[in-house]
Simulated scan of single mutants.
Amino acid sequence: MDSEVSNGSGLRDEHITNLLVLDFLQSFSDCKFHQELRTLGQELPFQACLEVEREDELQTDGNRASLFMGRIEADSESQEEVIQNIARHLAQVGDEMDRSIQPGLVNDLVARFMNVRLSEEDRRNCLATTLKQMQTYPKDMENEKATLIMTMLLAKKVADHTPSLLRDVFHATVNFINQNLFTYVRDLVRNEMD
């Protein structure tokens, strides 16, 4: 396997996961944290990369080139679209799973995230602990997909409960996914790009 393929679809790991979680959360129109989400989306590091690409890298054939991981990729917008489509699909599946999350678990997670002394690792561990307490994964769904959806649903529920926690829960979710599920996420993107 060549090194470019093993490094993912061209976006750096964090950018893929940032975009996936951001688009997943944006898929829900009935949330209380849209203003916070808009602000967060403008602050994320990939936003600056994407804006520079759109302004500066128009190719003579009309395609836009992107600079990620030190190399040019002509199809960054299609990668973005693929990730957005995956996020929307996962959000649709998540709608069915949403009701299975017990409010008590969300309340406990919110209380933990409100502790300003928690490190990023502590927040990620709180998220992992809450996921372990949930035993309502659909039996016909692969474990990684169910865990990915439930992780992002927990982020949605925490932010919906307390919008000021969006930034903390977003970063904990991204870190959890990058540590535990990134191979699965990268494979989803790759399969959709093929």
Rank of each mutant, 00 (worst) to 15 (best):
E77R: 04
D30E: 14
E73W: 11
D187L: 00
A48C: 00
E4P: 01
A87Q: 03
Y184S: 06
N115H: 06
A74N: 14
T136I: 03
K139Y: 13
I177G: 12
P163T: 00
D160F: 00
L50A: 07
R71T: 13
V5A: 10
Q84S: 12
V82K: 15
G62Q: 05
I101C: 01
D2L: 08
L154V: 04
M134K: 09
D75G: 07
S78W: 07
S100L: 06
L22S: 04
M152E: 02
G8Y: 11
F33M: 10
S29C: 05
E51C: 05
M69E: 13
F28S: 02
L37A: 07
A65L: 08
N180P: 02
L37V: 04
R124K: 13
K145N: 07
D75S: 12
N175Q: 02
Q84A: 10
T183N: 01
H171R: 11
A111H: 11
N178M: 15
L165E: 07
C126R: 09
D2P: 12
E96N: 08
D194H: 06
H15A: 08
D122Q: 04
T39E: 14
F176Q: 01
R124C: 11
E55V: 09
D75F: 10
N143P: 14
E77H: 04
N115E: 13
D160T: 01
N18G: 02
E192V: 00
D61P: 10
V93A: 09
Q79N: 10
V21L: 02
Q26M: 10
E144S: 15
T130V: 15
A155M: 11
F46C: 08
P103D: 09
D56V: 03
L90T: 02
D30C: 04
N125P: 01
L118W: 09
Q47D: 02
N191C: 00
S164I: 02
M134V: 13
P103R: 07
G94R: 11
Q47M: 04
Q179D: 12
E57Y: 02
V189R: 03
T173L: 00
R38W: 02
L131H: 06
L50Y: 06
Q35S: 14
F182L: 13
V21Q: 04
S9N: 09
K156R: 15
D108G: 13
R123F: 08
R117Y: 13
V106L: 08
R12S: 11
E4F: 09
V106P: 06
R64G: 05
L105V: 01
D75T: 10
P103M: 01
I149M: 02
I149N: 02
V52M: 10
N125C: 05
T173C: 03
S76H: 13
T129M: 15
I86G: 04
E96K: 06
L37R: 07
A91T: 14
L154P: 03
V169H: 00
N180T: 11
L148V: 11
S66V: 09
S76E: 11
M114Y: 08
N107T: 05
V116C: 06
D194T: 07
S9W: 03
L165T: 03
L22R: 03
F170H: 06
Q92P: 01
M69P: 01
I177A: 10
D2K: 13
E192D: 00
A172V: 08
K157Y: 00
A111Q: 14
N18C: 06
S3I: 15
V52C: 06
A91N: 13
F170I: 05
E55Y: 06
F176H: 09
M1G: 10
F170C: 03
S29L: 13
V174A: 01
E81W: 05
